[in-house]
Amino acid sequence: MAMLLTNVYHLRRVADTSDKACLICYKPTTSVMITPDNKDFFYVCPAHLQDRHFCSPIVNAEAEAARRKEEAMAQEIEKVKKEYEEKQRRKKEREKKSEKDDDKKEKDTKDKEKGKDESEPKANDEKERDEKIDSIRKGGTGPKADDSPRIFSLHKNFYQMRVDRLRNIEMAKRNQERMKNPSLFPSVPTGDI
């Protein structure tokens, strides 16, 4: 009557204040491996998850396809942004050339100075916009999700160790219940010796 335990463990993170010793190396860690039915859990360092002799990731094909599609969309968006910036740069160059031609035609020096004063704020606005775009690129649109696998199956030896542990806990509980039952013990002899 051993309890059935599936060899599927999900990786979860806990708060830094709730860290406990790793099952393997006993260092404090916040990574927890837990079964979907919450029957078994243990703390493990993220470095041990990379060890192929400890566990192997279970890859969800749908999630992997969605991640690839998302990456392709991000690349496409980046490509469109670059094309747009290039068009804007060409447009500015054409505008500058036309402004220079207009400035040459003008003979009044005051009008030329006003034209320069007006172009400087435009240049500052363009620089600010470019700086914002660069900061968004460097910082990203938000925090990037951890791409490491989330679902694992333990190596057969470690899995058997977990099953044995749960079986021993169950047997200990049964033994405790038996010890509390007074009918388990023999009765005191009642006759003359």
Score class of each variant (00 low, 15 high):
Glu128Pro: 01
Cys45Trp: 00
Glu170Asn: 14
Tyr84Asn: 08
Gly115Pro: 00
Tyr84Ser: 11
Glu71Asn: 11
Arg129Ile: 02
Asp101Cys: 14
Glu70Val: 07
Met33Phe: 14
Asn60Arg: 10
Lys81Glu: 14
Gly140Arg: 02
Glu93Trp: 09
Met73Ala: 11
Leu23Gln: 01
Lys27Phe: 09
Asp16Gln: 13
Ala145Val: 09
Phe54Arg: 01
Ile133Thr: 12
Cys25Lys: 09
Asp192Tyr: 05
Lys69Asp: 00
Glu76Ile: 04
Thr6Leu: 15
Leu11Glu: 09
Asp51Met: 04
Tyr84Arg: 15
Asp130Ser: 11
Ile77Gln: 07
Ser153His: 10
Asp146Gly: 01
Asp111Gln: 12
Met33Gln: 14
Lys97Asn: 14
Glu95Pro: 13
Ser153Val: 09
Tyr9Asn: 00
Val32Ala: 06
Tyr43Cys: 05
Tyr159Leu: 13
Met179Leu: 01
Asp134Cys: 02
Met73His: 08
Pro186Asp: 12
Ile133Ser: 05
Glu99Lys: 11
Pro186Asn: 10
Lys105Pro: 01
His53Gln: 00
Glu62Ala: 13
Glu64Cys: 07
His10Asp: 06
Lys39Asn: 15
Thr141Trp: 06
Ala66Ser: 13
Lys100Met: 08
Lys27Ile: 02
Ala65Met: 14
Arg165Thr: 07
Lys100Gln: 09
Ala2Thr: 15
Pro149Phe: 01
Cys25Ala: 07
Phe185Asp: 10
Met33Asn: 12
Lys156Asp: 12
Gly191Phe: 11
Pro182Leu: 01
Ile193Met: 13
Glu64Arg: 07
Arg89Gly: 02
Asp37Asn: 02
Lys132Asn: 03
Cys45Val: 01
Lys97Pro: 06
Val59Ala: 03
Arg167Cys: 03
Lys69Trp: 00
Met161Ala: 12
Lys81Tyr: 06
Met179His: 14
Arg167Val: 05
Ala61Asn: 08
Leu49Glu: 00
Lys97Gly: 10
Lys39Ala: 07
Arg174Glu: 00
Lys105Tyr: 13
Arg12Ile: 00
Lys39Gln: 11
Arg90Ile: 15
Met33Tyr: 12
Lys114Val: 11
Glu177Tyr: 03
Asn60Pro: 00
Ala123Asn: 05
Pro186Val: 01
Asp40Gly: 08
Ala15Ser: 13
Lys82Thr: 08
Ser119Pro: 00
Lys87Asn: 06
Phe158Tyr: 15
Ser183His: 04
Ile136Leu: 08
Arg150Asp: 03
Glu106Val: 02
Cys45Phe: 01
Arg174His: 01
Lys100Gly: 09
Phe42Met: 04
